[in-house]
Design a protein around this nucleic acid. Sequence first.
DNA 1: TCGCCAAGTTTGGTATACCATAAGACGGAA
DNA 2: TTCCGTCTTATGGTATACCAAACTTGGCGA
Lengths: 212, 212
Amino acid sequence: MESDLKIEAPARLRDVVLERLRGAIVAGRFASGERLIERNLCDLLGVSRSVVREVIRILEAEGLVEEGTRGPMVARLDWGQARQIYDIRVMLEAHAARECAGRADDMVRADVRAALAGIGGEGALDATARFYEVIFKAAGHDIAWEIVQRLNGRISRLRALTLASSDRKVSGLVRMTRIAEAVIAGDGAGAEAAVRAHLTEAAAIARRILEA
Amino acid sequence: MESDLKIEAPARLRDVVLERLRGAIVAGRFASGERLIERNLCDLLGVSRSVVREVIRILEAEGLVEEGTRGPMVARLDWGQARQIYDIRVMLEAHAARECAGRADDMVRADVRAALAGIGGEGALDATARFYEVIFKAAGHDIAWEIVQRLNGRISRLRALTLASSDRKVSGLVRMTRIAEAVIAGDGAGAEAAVRAHLTEAAAIARRILEA
DNA sequence: TCGCCAAGTTTGGTATACCATAAGACGGAA
DNA sequence: TTCCGTCTTATGGTATACCAAACTTGGCGA
């Protein structure tokens, strides 16, 4: 699809550190509310404070880090926030799914099928993101996709806490299949309903985790 | 309302510079697509590169600045993006207005009236933001409010380009009054419709500007 | 006159140094 | 023993120094 001739920009240290630190937070390697001491992170990551500070600013804007009284700390997440995030995701994703179903051509259908095929195996998180990306991009909702990605970062930490992940994965695949079928069939209302059902279930799981 | 005893944290240089630079971009003092040379900004603002760089990272996350081939530049804005932004705002603001109207108590009603009163005079932009803030906070949609603020920053630059601003201000006040009346009356559907009408008009103006 | 190469300059990336402040620890006096 | 003061240290804020890459420009040769 996209050409492989693109010259990839040399990876900046900042990007590497950003990805690493974001991953560590999402994976739960830092406790919620834990202070992020700049110099500690420098030692941990082997980079200078300039880089760490810029990365922290970005993560702050993403909502993964918040500034405490004395410095940055890992953002806390309660059910009130998660609920709001799921509400917003419902609006954005339902809208995107409906429009995507309405305008899907054969190429989009193929992309959806391919993305869905990737979900079953390992790396489910990335594959799921890819599935949604196809839908948002096909609907022409790039900006909404940016927002959803950012919101997702804030609640992805919950996944690390989910112990009974096997049944979730299965039901997740079922839900995704429903969404994909509706999109491929051009059934906008059905796609929207499938998205709502999926997110309602996900929110219920998040609620159980967060209110415990 | 809020106590005045709060010790305000000493203003960090970073915050001052952030506000200043954001204001300059929104006010149109930098051309769309203009490169933001770090050292130039240092001279202009009288601060060191550390501060400028952190601020640029924040503005990048806000969507006001994007990274060009060689460094950061003021983000370009076309109708395709603005249209998406208005679409998202419609969803978030309509939802907030509906919920706010549904749960508004006397205190919220008073806040809405007070915010509306501020719109007529000078500083209309801040007052309008304050109006919306009341509605979002009353609806319990803090996160949606953050998103809307950020999206607003990206399209506020259009205001600087609006020459015929007087009629817009008047019609804006009328629209706001409609929204406020519906919220105060507890009419969720009416509040939602008023928000939709307001944003549809605003989007039409933006389209005229951007497609010229 | 045209083209190519090289040196200089611009620019962003990265690291380090310095400073002010606040928290914590330790000791002395009541 | 407790309370107060001071000293140390940890920490974030800010500025500066250094480097590598890339663009520009000017000169030299064909």
